[in-house]
Every structure is written in C-alpha cells, then in structure tokens.
C-alpha cells in the first residue's frame, strides 16, 4: 500500500471503528458493509480535517473508496 493510501485507510478505519488491518488499499463502499452513506459523510469530515483538502458536494458523493480519496491528496 502506498504511504498516501495507508494514511487514508487509517482515517477510514478509525471512523468506522475497525482494526487497521481490515481496511485495505482496495476498501470501498461496495466491499465494506459498515461504509454506508452516513459513514461516507463522517469519513469525508475526518478526511477534510486530517488533510485539509477542500471537498465539494460532487467529490464527497463520489469519493467512496480508499483509492479515490487517496487520489485527492497532492503528490
């Protein structure tokens, strides 16, 4: 897992209250049943606070996987 993905995965794990090992680089709303639409909002709130990346409505609604969230981070 890239460093960026790992950091995003740890934010997701802490919001979903899961052990870090259960949130992998390919984790998404499709394959984690705890990751529902309310969780999506909480993940994005935590993501915004942690990385300071501004998110518009479309981005919040569509960034439903670790990979998509990691892609929002600057290189």
């Amino acid at each position: 897992m890239s460093a960026k993905s790992a950091e995003v995965a740890s934010v997701v794990a802490s919001v979903l209250n899961l052990p870090a090992a259960e949130v992998t680089a390919d984790a998404s709303m499709e394959n984690l049943h705890q990751w529902d639409s309310l969780a999506q909002l909480n993940i994005c709130l935590a993501f915004h606070e942690r990385f300071g990346v501004a998110m518009d409505m479309e981005t919040i609604a569509s960034s439903t996987s670790v990979a998509k969230l990691a892609a929002l981070l600057p290189n």
Binding site: L38, C44, L45, E49, M55, M57, T59
Partner: peptide
C-alpha cells in the same frame, strides 16, 4: 457541502 448532502452543518 456536508450541509446540503447530509444536513451536517459543522466541520
């Protein structure tokens, strides 16, 4: 954005 998506007003 969070407000209009999910009635979350606050950061």
């Amino acid at each position: 954005p969070f407000w209009y998506l999910g009635r979350i007003r606050y950061s």
